[in-house]
Design a protein around this nucleic acid. Structure first.
Lengths: 391, 391
DNA sequence: TCGATTAACTCAACTAAGTTGAGTATCCCG
DNA sequence: CGGGATACTCAACTTAGTTGAGTTAATCGA
């Protein structure tokens, strides 16, 4: 969101320590349970440095010792793991008609959920309810303010983009504002703002099928279609935070190139159903239709195969991901069927003889609520080194 | 290339200093000429720290003072700029039939060029000639070995990918080797290995139209078609270094989806010309045909408009780049015409009302030889912070 | 069974590097 | 021509990682 490349900043003792804390936490997150000497080797630090950092993190409740493990010779390793209840992150989803909030701990479990209906999602209205929301979340979750790492915010394109789907409209009043700064000020917390697809992608990394992945893509079914891309452990933002607008990419159809979103999105399903006289406004509607294996819905599903296969081939070749994860606001069975139907190309860079693991995965978190994904943005930050501004 | 995320490493005093040196160099590179206090403010360091680092860099000949500049009140700023002759990088291109080498200094000018024909580009043959090539380069360029930053290597897919075009074949014997380590050992230097498109992209950042860009894409016309993507100042590599295989993405045509490369690449031009009985095996052939405005070639050019426009729309929406740069082994005028013909979509995230600068650019370095691009990889590294392994 | 070996970890002294604050030089402004 | 502003230097200080010498606790082998 900021104009300045976060990497373009100098290092000093304090920032190095922050970096090392994050790197250690991230390593423990990936490993599950490790000893200090192992961490030191893996991170290129001295055991002593790791010991100091771990003592600090344990003191703050972020890590906990999980006992000694005897492995061959030598002193048995004292293993450390994340303490899931050691910290929480706030997740906030701003919709045109409501603000949803959640509090999530380090392993991704939600401790609190709230919905606040608004008549208008303009900055003033939304920011006004923030402090109250934060305090209620802390109280309900039963954690002290000192354990609150920050707040993630998911909102539709305040990034000056023009949506293809009319259904995905910008929120009013946010266009020329620095949402990150505004929320940060209102909450007195570090804040990360992203779109729903990016949040969902990160969520799978924190506690989902992409745990341990450094490079993957998440195809997110919201109202439109979004793509959250992680490369080298970081979200791909692009020049203006608008990367991953996969719904707008042209795919071949019998009528020539059409935007992917016009064939593959909840909105397109709704249109398809409406043409057959079936109303399906909510996700629940689609869920029941799918449960009943409604032929019109299955017909829609069938026509997604071709454009989706083309999109997958494009994504694989441009990003070379470890896998593409599918998820979002569609019935889980439907997504599974979708994945099963896709024809994987063997002229893709993903079709290596030595590849491990499937090329397509279904998101583990099921229908991730965007607010939980928002919170995951913050959790992920504490695992991800960033010699950068101290917020 | 390495399996480990370079970011996942701890910081200490030495690595912080390296980081800061790189960050300072990069800042000076972008700014052209700046004072120490300004750098300190921009990088979040103390003036003193920047002074120390600059003294060190000046002592090594990487920076030079360009005089005082009086700007308003206060002590006039002592400005510093890169000293182009302060360091050199080796650039090496490995082709099936030859090894090309160059030595390039900090502003991207080539000081040495050599071509070494080989009967087979297998590892043994190629690595054997490396030390001699390095020494010849140093001698011809008239620089001491201490000024040699490292070597960049460009080679076609040693990354285990399967090319679409038969013309782009893997080099024999490199498939299961760690090219970076092998070259590093042979040359006793830090080495970076990339494909031609990535090298070309970085080259434009070091001394081309992408100077100062943090996020852009380079569409490279080699034998096939490649895409080098830079985001957040770093090359996008993907899980296995194969990101950017834009030639394989499917684009709509009258016959349904076809790989982009089958319509837009030098090879496709050759096929097109061959079908009309015209032989154009070399780049020179295409150059003369273009100079003569050969109708068959122009016909080929015309048919690239539609697929290229679709590809541009895809790239813009997935990467949200500041711009897409076009370049490679095609006549400069032809590339210019190509850019002019492309129909830019306004449903793209690049079509913002507040955008500055053109969406498409022509590479400044003309027909970048891959070897020069290879050297740029190393130059770019010295401008780019990387708390990571010391090579 | 018991000493040798191995490995994890701690303690205390050391070192690298950035920060802080006082002081100096040089310009502009009124 | 004095006061304010800005860049820069010097020297003392602080933070945090490293080094090397122990200590503890396990396995291995004679």
């Amino acid at each position: 969101m900021s104009d300045r490349d976060p990497q373009t900043i100098g290092a000093n003792a304090g920032r190095s320590r922050r970096h090392n804390r994050q790197v250690v936490l991230g390593h423990v997150h990936r490993a599950g349970a490790v000893g200090r000497a192992q961490i030191a080797r893996d991170l290129g630090l001295s055991t002593q440095a790791v010991s100091n950092i771990i003592a600090e993190l344990e003191g703050e409740g972020l890590l906990r010792a999980t006992g000694r493990r005897v492995a061959g010779r030598g002193l048995p390793v004292v293993q450390y793991a994340l303490n899931p209840t050691g910290a929480v992150a706030l997740g906030i989803e701003v919709r045109p008609d409501a603000v949803l909030a959640t509090a999530v701990n380090l392993d991704g479990t939600a401790l609190f959920k709230a919905r606040h209906t608004v008549t208008s999602a303009d900055p003033e209205t939304v920011l006004e309810i923030m402090p109250g929301l934060r305090d209620r979340a802390l109280e309900s979750a039963g954690v002290s303010a000192s354990k609150l790492l920050g707040a993630g915010v998911v909102m539709p394109g305040p990034f000056g983009m023009r949506g293809f789907s009319e259904g995905v409209s910008d929120l009013p009043g946010w266009q020329n504002s620095n949402a990150e700064a505004l929320f940060g000020q209102a909450l007195s917390l570090p804040v990360a703002v992203e779109n729903d697809a990016n949040a969902a992608a990160v969520s799978e990394r924190v506690s989902g099928v992409a745990r341990g992945f450094e490079s993957y893509a998440f195809l997110y079914f919201g109202a439109g279609l979004g793509l959250g891309v992680v490369t080298g452990g970081r979200l791909l933002r692009g020049a203006r935070g608008n990367a991953g607008e996969v719904g707008h990419i042209p795919v071949a159809s019998e009528k020539g190139p059409v935007p992917l979103e016009s064939r593959v999105s909840r909105l397109s399903a709704r249109h398809h159903l409406a043409a057959a006289g079936i109303e399906a406004d909510s996700i629940g509607d689609i869920e029941s239709l799918y449960a009943a294996r409604n032929p019109v819905l299955l017909d829609w599903l069938a026509q997604t195969v071709q454009p989706l296969s083309l999109a997958v081939q494009t994504i694989e070749n441009l990003f070379d991901p470890q896998a593409i994860v599918f998820g979002g606001a569609l019935p889980s069975g439907l997504i599974a069927e979708m994945i099963g139907g896709i024809q994987l190309a063997d002229t893709s860079v993903a079709a290596r003889p030595d590849r491990v693991g499937p090329r397509l995965l279904q998101g583990a978190t099921g229908r991730i609520t965007a607010a939980v994904g928002a919170a995951a943005l913050i959790i992920n930050q504490s695992f991800t080194p960033q010699i950068g501004p101290p917020h």
